[in-house]
Design a protein around this nucleic acid. Structure first.
Lengths: 348, 348
DNA sequence: CTGTTAGCGCTTTCAG
DNA sequence: CTGAAAGCGCTAACAG
């Protein structure tokens, strides 16, 4: 493997000149530039990433703090990873995965202190987040996909949950639904201050109140069985429900089954939709699920791009962006005939 | 950030002694060892990964070549990534993601020549694989999750497709099915020499022949719609089919719908199962899908562990392992009543 | 058992 | 516009 010295020798220049030519850090006459690049080509030279990083104190490596959520990883998380990796590569960075059951923030500190990475992108952020607190304390550069409660001076991208929940409820209301259930993440995740769970919870209550609808909320673990139980509980307590909004599509098969067991049809007798749910999952359902599709690829990409901007000093102050989910109407939602017809019965 | 020199000074030893103490490369008297580690603790010293790598010519970083398959990424791929990351961390390595639309193997060469990573784990391997050929040509250390046609001197872990297909067919045969369809990956993937598609194809033909069953094979893209079409085509041409084995669970919802549209019930009128399909996906179906569950976590873990063994010279020769999938009977498979009853009609 | 020192391959002052 | 040389922080001979 040829080194920069080999290139310098062959081009009849000093190593520093080669370095400047490569990095464009200093003007180089066109002629010597040509000579240098010719030499590099002929030798098949590639700068050594480690040496470069050691000397410049910038490794051009960033880490994705890839913490598995309590509910397990899904396609959404996968898309963060792939889009983050692509974005890093396009910007000339490498992406390392810090797959942490690092629930110990000390481990995160040790990792950052190895000098391997220039910054980290944190995902699965809680309102009061150990990892975020750690990084802040040691002033290590980072951005979030998601956000904690106190976001002063931190760059992040997150889903606009407030708007997402509102649009979902509004959509159902326009179809004529007035009794709507909201199936959140698990109680454990809510209690742990998991951002999406908390924000959506609060927002749903606000929205139904403002719109003068009847809303009921329930927590639910991310399994079909939990969905089945939750649905039956909800309908026992609130038989007038005609629609349900779920935070997690993993509950949906159980819900669909519970609906089928009542002899009901979707969406004629009951409407179902999921928020922050990947199109891929939605299209695996029968019938395909109406969802608010999250911009997963953009979130992953922006997470790393904001970090890189910050590392390269192009960012004066923190950029904070909230991205909307997009309503995609598929076949699981529509006007409700069940309650309408029973109302007609009452009216007679 | 303290350096090794600071530690040496504080412990009253030479830097090399500190280095040897850290790496255990040379015997150190217990007393000085103590002094050194005390000094490290007091200073909060962390060895610099870049410097260490540069000096030792071993970065302790490996890459996962994370090529997106034509059919898109699924939970199986996600599990490779997370288990690979965990395994790397447990062995003191970092894992970088080389998310390649690197269909250009030259890009892979450039990446390896940067001296950043000690080796790479390749996934989504084709029988004649550009990436593998490239790595071989430049003698860069690597292992495969999957395998190419010529595996001389290459370590790999792969699913034992031959056994998996056989067990799946055997299971269905024991339930009394004699007319069985096999829904492979897409024609494009087969033609590209994608290992699983080719091996499963060949094996299915063998197995039905040996067992004196009637088998029909069809390629199918990884979407519910393609599954729907494929199923209808198959049953038009072969009305006696009573069971289907699918290579990709993304086709299943379409198949289930097609079955429902005929007024048939699963599994009474038709049995369905998927091979090399994650439990997570299987449990999202209604009814839950019988599958041959692949050992995804082991595959990811072994992929990196074999690589690390090779890098650390503990591997004399290539280790090649084939792991079985595990039959998990859920609710989509059983004896067929449809054909039995029509046979009875004939018998009368 | 421990110390000295020459690199690893590059960046970046400092000097011209 | 270009060179010389001093590191970056660590490992691994080499020398005792």
């Amino acid at each position: 493997m040829p080194t920069i010295a080999d290139v310098a020798k062959r081009a009849n220049v000093a190593v520093s000149t080669v370095s400047y030519a490569i990095n464009g850090t200093r003007p180089i006459s066109e002629e010597t530039r040509q000579r240098i690049f010719a030499a590099m080509d002929e030798l098949g030279y590639r700068p050594n990433a480690l040496a470069r990083g050691l000397a410049s104190k910038r490794s051009r490596i960033i880490a994705l703090l890839f913490a598995a959520p309590e509910r397990g990883l899904g396609i959404t998380e996968l898309e963060f990873v792939t889009s983050a990796a692509d974005a890093a590569k396009e910007n000339g960075y490498h992406l390392v995965l810090w797959s942490s059951e690092m629930n110990d923030p000390e481990e995160l500190r040790r990792f950052t202190q190895q000098g391997l990475v220039d910054g980290v992108v944190v995902m699965e952020v809680h309102l009061d987040d150990n990892h975020v607190n750690m990084l802040r304390e040691i002033s290590f550069p980072f951005t979030m996909i998601g956000r904690c409660a106190d976001t002063d001076d931190i760059s992040y991208v997150d889903i606009h949950f407030e708007q997402t929940i509102k649009e979902a409820v509004q959509y159902l209301a326009e179809l004529g639904h007035t009794n709507i259930a909201f199936l959140n993440h698990s109680q454990a995740e809510f209690d742990a201050g998991y951002g999406p769970a908390v924000r959506a919870h609060t927002r749903f209550a606000q929205v139904v109140e403002t719109m003068e609808l009847t809303g009921v909320t329930r927590f639910c673990r991310a399994t079909p069985l939990a969905g089945w139980e939750a649905f039956n509980d909800l309908l026992t307590a609130h038989p007038d429900l005609t629609a349900l909004v779920a935070m997690n599509d993993r509950t949906i098969p159980g819900i669909m089954q519970a609906i089928a067991e009542r002899g009901w049809r979707i969406p004629d007798d009951f409407s179902l939709m999921s928020v922050v749910s990947s199109a891929r999952a939605a299209e695996m359902m029968v019938p395909p699920l109406t969802t608010m599709d999250p911009p997963t690829a953009e979130l992953g990409r922006l997470g790393v791009e904001l970090l890189i901007q910050q590392l390269e000093g192009q960012a004066q102050n923190a950029s904070q962006m909230l991205l909307p989910c997009r309503l995609v109407v598929r076949d699981s939602s529509g006007p409700c005939r069940r309650i309408q017809s029973s109302k007609q019965v009452e009216d007679q």
